[in-house]
Design a protein around this nucleic acid. Structure first.
Lengths: 147, 147
DNA sequence: TAGCATTGCATGGCTAGCTATGTAATAATA
DNA sequence: TATTATTACATAGCTAGCCATGCAATGCTA
C-alpha cells in the first residue's frame, strides 16, 4: 500500500500554499510587509478604524493569531491602535500613512502573482480551478460545522 | 480597485491548505503524530535507515525544518537516530516499533480526507483538479529556478 | 446594586515553515 | 601532509498558525 503525494489533494494544496506564500513574501518585502499581514491590510484598506473583533470577523484566522499579527504591524509602523471611545476593553485600529500608501503596489503584487501562476491556463480553466477550490473549501467548512 | 479574496488563487490555496492541515491534525492526533511529521514518515515507511540528507532529498522542505521535525519525532518516540557507520557527521534515521505501527491507520486517515473533500467531485473533476494543482506547482518551481 | 457571566483582547506555549549561521568531520589540494 | 574547502547537521531567530488561559471591563440579573 503506497501513498502517492502527487495524487493527494491535501499534499498538493499544502505544497502549493507554501510556494505561494514565499513568492508573495519576496514580492512584498520591498513594501515592508509580510504575507500574514496581507489579509488584515486588505480589510483595513476597505474600512479603517475597526475594532479587533470587527476585523477578525472579516478574516479566516483565529483571534490570537490576529492579535499577534496586529502587534507586529504596529511595531512595523503600519497601524496604530487607539482607545475605543465607548468601550475601554476594545481598541480601534487605524492605518498609518505608510500603511495606506502601500495599498496599490501591494494589490498589484498579489494580482500579478495570481496572473503569473495561471498564465498557461485558459479563462475556462482558471474559472474551473477557482471554482473547484471554492467548492472544496465550502465542503470542508460545512463538515466541521454541521450546525 | 478592489481585491476579492474569493477570486484569488493564492488566497484560496492558502486558506484551504490551513483547513486541511487542521483536519489532518485532528485525524492523526490519536496516532500520536502531527501533520509536519507526515511527509517524513511517508518516506521512512518506504525506506528506513536513511540519512537526513537522503530523507531531505525526498521532501519539499528545507534542511533546517527537517532537522527540527526529526528532533520532535525522536522526542515523541517515532524514530531513533544512530551514528552513521562511515561518516561521523551523518546519522541514520530509523523508525521505532511505534513509528512503524501507525503506518496503515495514518495512510488511511490521509486517504479518507482526500476522499471526503472530493466526495462531490466526479472522477473527471478530481483528475482535472489534481492536474491543475500539479501544473501550477510546476510553473511556480520553474519560475523560481530558471536554471 | 452586588455579584456573576460575558466580552475583548493579550499572553503563553506549541508546531512548522523560513533564512542565516555555527560546528565538527570529511574531502580536496597546494 | 598541512591547509583549505566542502559537507552534514544543528541552532538561533523570525513569521504565522493553532489552542488554552488570563485579565480587566462591561453587561446582566437576582
Amino acid at each position: 500500500m503506497k501513498f502517492d503525494r502527487m495524487s493527494s489533494a491535501g499534499y498538493l494544496v499544502n505544497n502549493l500554499g507554501r510556494l505561494l506564500v514565499e513568492k508573495l513574501r519576496t514580492r512584498i518585502a520591498p513594501l515592508g510587509i509580510v504575507p500574514g499581514q496581507f489579509p488584515a491590510l486588505l480589510a483595513l484598506w476597505e474600512q479603517d478604524g475597526l475594532t479587533q473583533k470587527e476585523l477578525l470577523a472579516m478574516l479566516d484566522i483565529e483571534q490570537a493569531t490576529l492579535a499577534n499579527t496586529l502587534t507586529r504591524m504596529e511595531r512595523d509602523g503600519l497601524i496604530v491602535r487607539k482607545e475605543h471611545p465607548a468601550d475601554a476593553r476594545a481598541r480601534t485600529i487605524h492605518l498609518t500613512d505608510q500603511g495606506r500608501s502601500i495599498r496599490d503596489p501591494a494589490h498589484l503584487a498579489a494580482m500579478q502573482i495570481n496572473q503569473e501562476i495561471l498564465a498557461d491556463f485558459s479563462e475556462k480553466e482558471t474559472q474551473e480551478f477557482l471554482d473547484y477550490m471554492r467548492r472544496i473549501i465550502a465542503k470542508v467548512k460545512e463538515a466541521e460545522e454541521p450546525n
